[in-house]
Nucleic acid binder design. Structure first.
Lengths: 184, 184
DNA sequence: GCTCCCATGTAATCTGTTACATGATTCC
DNA sequence: GGAATCATGTAACAGATTACATGGGAGC
């Protein structure tokens, strides 16, 4: 089976939801997916074009009252097969996250401890804000979203974000303590 | 102060260590940095050229016995200032990691539970292998590296990797249990 | 008319990988 | 001579962001 890039698979996946247009796809990403998957319009529209060229979906124009027309994309049989095939294939490798803080820390020997500490404190604060964001979304889903089938997977991804973020926060704490002690 | 990209800063940082040539930079990355920062030759050599053009470093050819000549790069005053400036600047945002497993899971409603489970088990295994790798390196450093100043920062970055990986493994366990229960 | 949101799209640019080309030196 | 390691480099391609251009419709 022909290979496509990750962006294509992500968009095919989104097209199985209620989001059928380029604009709606972007909204879904900005509302829900952005914590682990971002796509810009500069990718979305060209990719939708490719998807139609490859006959993975068909387009039709939908008129809406009070709003401009929009193009709606619907997966073809072939599109569904390509998506299914990707969903069933194990990932090639766990992602290697680029981490600028670790990079700066690696050069820590050539910095003042005070600067290293302030980097760590800043990082910790950003992580705590992120954790709060995740918790807030979680609360909102638990409170308002009673469609269990939808919300379950949503909550699972949030749980991932929270756990990993919390582990990083704890690392910050430990490291800050350790380096502080060395300053004395 | 003029802005450069992350790759440039990373290379400036590496040039403060004993690694002074393009080849040596690549070795350092493959040996130590690759878990949170990868760079290919296709970036290294052009960036080194840029660094010299911008007068952040000077080059000289170094002859070695029994090996081909190599070019050695040394930071200029300006290069050191640019590096220091970057090291002191707080990061703009904590990195957003693309996660293909979460993406697939997000579309989980449209998959069989069995497939979701097998994705999770595969992911867990990859994470466990990674954890073992980190532990192995840690052991090696603790055993053989007695230069405390160097190894401290080294161990801190490894600790980060271990904590975050372990959190992800625990998430896998919880999620696998939860989804298994739903299958019944 | 102006602003805001809805909606689609593209061009320029940046970032990064992969594959290839080249050649010195050592050891077998 | 051949293989392995050391060493430098580039061209083609892939992936992604940013900024811009365009325009419909609603509400003030």
């Amino acid at each position: 089976m022909k290979k496509y890039n990750h962006t294509t698979y992500a968009i095919l996946g989104i097209l199985t939801t209620d989001c059928k247009s380029g604009y709606a796809i972007k909204q879904l990403i900005d509302n829900s997916l952005k914590h682990f998957w971002k796509i810009s319009y500069g990718q979305i529209y060209p990719t939708l074009k490719l998807i139609v060229d490859e006959e993975l979906a068909t387009v039709s124009i939908s008129s809406q009252e009070g709003k401009p027309d929009r193009k709606e994309y619907y997966l073809t049989q072939k599109g569904e097969e390509v998506l299914k095939n990707w969903l069933e294939k194990p990932i090639e490798q766990a992602p290697v996250e680029r981490n600028e803080v670790l990079l700066k820390l690696f050069f820590g020997r050539h910095q003042s401890k005070e600067n290293t500490l302030s980097q760590l404190q800043d990082y910790k604060q950003k992580l705590e804000e992120r954790y709060q964001t995740y918790s807030g979304i979680e609360q909102m889903i638990s409170t308002f979203e009673h469609n269990k089938r939808d919300s379950t997977y949503w909550l699972i991804t949030l749980d991932y974000g929270k756990r990993v973020t919390m582990a990083a926060i704890e690392w910050c704490d430990t490291t800050i303590k350790q380096i502080s002690k060395e300053v004395e």
